[in-house]
Design a protein around this nucleic acid. Structure first.
Lengths: 186, 186
DNA sequence: TTACCTTTGCTAACAGTGTTAGCTATTTTC
DNA sequence: GAAAATAGCTAACACTGTTAGCAAAGGTAA
């Protein structure tokens, strides 16, 4: 039942966007009355929160695959960037929910660090790269956030249609170039 | 009347956040009935859109000041970054609306390029820096987006409380360091 | 079998939202 | 003074999230 609610909600969101998700529509879709939903979730926000958790888990699975596939930390970092980008644009509904893009965010601020996984994964890769180079913990931490920021910023700008670059392969190229330059200067 | 509606709406948002802005509350505040608001704005989205325009204009004024104050393009770029950051955190309600952070965005995708001013201003500064260095237009364009992205990304992450850095001066230091490194590698 | 209790699900309501049709007054114009 | 235009309102429609309270079904114990 719980999973049924979640999967129906996700499908509705994929089809019509977050804006048009409502408890009553979910109830209709699972062919139960409204209050049953409140037997399984405290409120609408709890549903969105759970979905955003699914998003983080999905992303994490991809990063975990990379970790097994790329022992070289530089290649790993590139693969993580690639995975993050492709996750965002293959699952925009998840990405928007996870980071509160264009919707009343449900999870942000409440998501535990262990779920907000991307920071940890790229952190590991970056630490692997700068291991030999004598850089302080603080410097490394800053670089992790800089790397995450440029990815998240670019994705946000493109996803929110604030970019005036039409060609989507161009936007991807901006990322690739920036990642390349970033790694070169680690 | 129009301006009255807008200023009342802005004040309400500053006090209680976008979530709790409603047409009826605006009507109460201006001491008129609900339909008068629809005489001046097509719908709620139009009000939010107009407010986001105000945000862009406010930001633009700051960038314009910088342009007069800093003839040196490198200093200008740093000042622009500084202004963008301080604008975002002094006017989070504007920033969120302008870029659709944590709210059903009204403007994104509809904002004309000439209003979405930041890209243009930093573009000018960056072009000033790389003028001598033989870099293609495409490369320059990419760098503009990379610069904007890292700023917007970092601001988004901090504003949405996705950063686990508590100290706000630390977050600012991440930006300063990143901007410094970016300019060095232009 | 009867009585009770727990579970399952529903109807109907409350309080709020954006939006609009249609009605009064009041003011302007001829 | 009559007609037209304006200003503003009430009341409704169709939604939203949320909950109180009821009814039927199933299991358990005397």
């Amino acid at each position: 039942m719980r999973t049924n609610i979640l999967s129906v909600a996700l499908q509705m969101v994929k089809d019509e966007g977050w804006q048009s998700l409502s408890i009553r529509k979910i109830a209709d879709a699972i062919e139960y009355s409204v209050p049953v939903i409140y037997d399984h979730f405290e409120n609408k926000e709890a549903i969105l929160f759970e979905l955003s958790m699914d998003g983080f888990r999905l992303l994490e699975r991809m990063l975990e695959k990379n970790k097994k596939k790329f022992p070289n930390p530089e290649q790993l970092l590139k693969a993580h960037a690639e995975a993050y980008w492709s996750f965002a644009f293959k699952n925009p509904e998840y990405y928007q929910l996870m980071y509160g893009l264009g919707m009343p965010c449900s999870g942000t601020g409440k998501v535990k660090p262990e779920f907000n996984c991307f920071r940890g994964y790229i952190g590991q890769a970056i630490e692997g790269i700068v291991k030999e180079k004598k850089s302080s913990d603080e410097e490394t931490c800053f670089k992790i956030y800089a790397f995450w920021s440029v990815l998240h910023g670019l994705i946000s700008i493109v996803m929110m249609r604030c970019s005036d670059i039409d060609d989507s392969t161009m936007n991807k190229k901006v990322m690739d170039d920036t990642v390349e330059a970033f790694i070169k200067n680690l």
